[in-house]
Write a protein that binds this DNA or RNA. Structure first.
Lengths: 248, 248
DNA sequence: CGGGTATTTGACGACTGTCAACGCCAGTGG
DNA sequence: CCACTGGCGTTGACAGTCGTCAAATACCCG
């Protein structure tokens, strides 16, 4: 396991220079004065190189993070050592929150790419929740969204074929990147820093079988995953195959 | 699909006669005067016969429920018609909550046994969240717990064998029933109203294979599931086999 | 250019699903 | 009281998806 290598960038500015819009993902319903409080409680920005751990499962949950830049894999480890991916966090996502009643992380988080995050102390999050009902409601909404996503994953792992699960995972990524204006609509291509092994972890497959399915999807003219970039050649078929329904 | 057959029992009493303690599962950190408000917002108790639907996935989420008596299966349906179980709700559990930002249920809920629930209007839940930070925090805590459980299910479906998944599911039920003082500690037996088909839905298996695994577990002297009742003959091995860790 | 990582491919086997049939049991109605 | 009926559990034969093992190839970075 790679060791945690947080690099503090110093105190954060009042507005995040990297991606000011993304930040609204966490505080999008919060009035301006609340935003000011959130900013003041924010401890710092951190950079994290690819393949390093942001936090480890079952560890003390001291911080929560808003992801500014890069991709993060949330996962859980089986007792035989294999990992099961839970979700890919993309810029704007809020990860690592733990309620005061359970101060440990329920999963691990590993940087897929180089990553920039903004840290909040859990205690500060809890204080904000107690002081501002808008924030409490927003956190609750975020949790509900993650829960619905997690339920989709349960459905997929329990009932879908390998091909359907991979199609679903890629369609989901494409949709979420589209919301962030990170896809090339003309060629239907998107950044894709996942290795096939990571995609397998996410879909409950071995790397070998992941590879076979990807080749099949390419042969069928649906999807083409290359180094660092994926091109969707038939989005309609991909969505139908994976049974993907965007959650808005 | 069985039709919804809610039967209203009339206005609820201030204290729930059926199981006063259970109710604290929802409002356990809430001060007394808040509890009074929660009671006043509660609309009514309902009874629901076994095998009927409490709410359907993707339907308008008008109500949330605290389960007083009986078992409920939460599930999602695959487009081929097969169902994937998400969680068994037991007395005291709070189900069907949807945030104001997404007014539809993310899953369906079917009564396994005859069931008594207490209904709350979603709008009232949202109002309580806005007016009482303690309640907001409690709802958030409940969501976090369900999310952690859901993550465990993802890990199980993605990485565990059929035998391990069934062992995990039964160990989880035993532990949760133990907390509710519904197990017979002497014989290590518990009520078990699930059919093998339902247990298969929960663990991502076909009824036939569920049966084979149950027979194997019985042959190994670990577990014995009979009509309406299950007896755990070797709890330690069951827990180890399923890799079960109670969440407290 | 060299070494490590990621991808690709083949052979084989195990776990789990599918199909089909039968038995058991409870409830029902004659 | 007994036959009937429907649901659930049980069992066998077989097939297919997917995992395992092993090796070769391609790619990236220093």
């Amino acid at each position: 396991m790679p060791k945690n290598k947080l690099t503090e960038l110093g105190a954060a500015s009042t507005r995040c220079a990297v991606c000011p819009i993304r930040e609204k993902a966490l505080f999008q319903v919060v009035a301006e004065d609340y935003l000011a409080e959130a900013e003041s409680r924010r401890t710092a920005q951190y950079r994290l190189p690819a393949r390093t751990s942001l936090y480890q499962e079952a560890a003390q949950a001291s911080m929560a993070y808003t992801l500014f830049e890069g991709w993060i894999l949330l996962y859980r480890t089986h007792f035989d050592g294999s990992r099961q991916g839970l979700r890919i966090a993309l810029p704007g996502d809020f990860v690592g929150y733990a309620p005061a009643s359970d101060a440990t992380y329920s999963h691990g988080a590993m940087a897929i790419t180089d990553v920039t995050v903004c840290g909040f102390r859990q205690a500060d999050m809890h204080a904000m929740i107690d002081n501002h009902t808008d924030i409490a409601r927003q956190i609750s909404n975020i949790q509900s969204g993650y829960l619905a996503t997690c339920e989709s994953n349960v459905l997929g792992l329990g009932r879908k074929s390998a091909e359907q699960r991979i199609a679903h995972a890629v369609a989901d990524l494409y949709h979420r990147l589209d919301l962030r204006a990170e896809v090339d609509g003309a060629s239907c291509s998107m950044p894709f820093p996942l290795t096939q092994e990571m995609l397998g972890e996410l879909t409950g497959l071995t790397p070998v079988h992941t590879n076979r399915v990807l080749r099949k999807l390419r042969a069928e003219g649906i999807l083409r995953c290359e180094r660092q970039r994926a091109e969707i050649q038939d989005l309609a078929r991909l969505v139908e195959l994976g049974g993907y329904h965007s959650v808005g």
